[in-house]
């Protein structure tokens, strides 16, 4: 039976195919088309308006010799590594704690998820105020008597990325916790019963049994968090606007500044193409694991 249906796979589920058509066209024209356009024009010397004067890899050479771009990459790497580790670890630990059949779980879940309801702009502004040495945390601690207390991460070029990290984690972990919690709830109760019968301690069950079973959840979380890291922009704009100096610049800010403020399309598009490449580096292995893996399973 399967073979006869496969013969008309274009006609099968015709209604749903027609319904999906507008989105397919949008994807092809806006996403794929826009991406191709971006890559093509990154090889031109377009200034404010696009023009077809191809200059080879000149824009990329300039990009990779620009100290601001290199610093942006470094900043993003620092932010990315810590954000990835902490969101996943903290998100998972919170989810486990939430999974202990505690009282008022709904209330806790809501509290944890609340920061995610705020946009990065609001998060950034709030944390800019909290971390401001004159109004925020530092002045509160000082007013309690510790006169030499210093905590001004947003004004110290060496640790400004960690100031951003605090805000990023505060905003993002609750959401990851919810996904993890859903994953934990998806684990069959019988597995817990079996491990209890075998006398395996709870912490060991989590590490040896539960985490491997939650592999798809972890992969989804990994992709979500990584994509969020690479496109990091609004949080930085709201919190530090890239300062002090260039200490908290990120690639997306470089793209925006060169596309619009500097009126240098070619340079901005070359930078955004590099960002696309880094997203693909994340996405391709994920797609392989998610969709390629099923054939074997």
């Amino acid at each position: 039976m399967a073979s006869t249906v496969r013969g008309n796979r274009w006609i099968r589920n015709l209604n749903s195919k027609i319904a999906a058509l507008p989105m397919v066209i949008t994807t092809m024209v806006v996403f794929v088309g826009g991406t191709i356009w971006t890559v093509v024009y990154s090889f031109t010397n377009s200034k404010l308006l696009p023009r077809e004067e191809f200059v080879g890899f000149a824009q990329y050479e300039r990009l990779w010799s620009n100290s601001r771009w290199l610093q942006s990459i470094e900043n993003l790497a620092v932010y990315g590594i810590f954000a990835l580790i902490f969101t996943i670890v903290v998100g998972f630990v919170l989810a486990v704690l939430m999974d202990q059949k505690i009282r008022y779980e709904d209330a806790f879940r809501t509290i944890m998820l609340y920061p995610f309801a705020l946009s990065f702009i609001v998060t950034g502004l709030v944390w800019q105020w909290i971390l401001n040495p004159e109004f925020g945390l530092q002045s509160i601690v000082r007013s309690m008597g510790w006169d030499n207390f210093v905590f001004d991460p947003l004004y110290n070029p060496d640790i400004v990325m960690y100031g951003l990290l605090i805000a990023g984690l505060w905003q993002g972990t609750g959401f990851i916790m919810c996904i993890m919690l859903a994953g934990l709830r998806g684990i069959d109760e019988d597995i817990w019963k079996a491990t209890r019968v075998d006398g395996i301690p709870t912490w060991k069950t989590y590490i040896v049994v539960i985490i491997p079973m939650m592999r798809p959840v972890f992969i989804t979380v990994l992709v979500l968090v990584t994509a969020g890291i690479i496109k990091l922009y609004d949080l930085v704009v709201a919190q530090t606007s890239g300062g002090p100096g260039l200490a908290s610049q990120v690639p997306a800010m470089y793209v925006y500044d060169y596309l619009f403020t500097a009126q240098n399309l070619g340079q901005g598009l070359a930078a955004s193409t590099m960002m696309l490449v880094s997203v693909l580096v994340v996405l391709i292995p994920w797609a392989y694991l998610e969709f390629g893996g099923k054939k074997h399973g």
Binding site: N66, R68, L246, D257, Y258, A262, Q263, Q267
Partner: peptide, 11 residues
């Protein structure tokens, strides 16, 4: 100077 040069000088 063009906005491109101005931005780089600012950086």
């Amino acid at each position: 100077w063009s906005p491109d040069v101005q931005t780089q000088l600012g950086d």
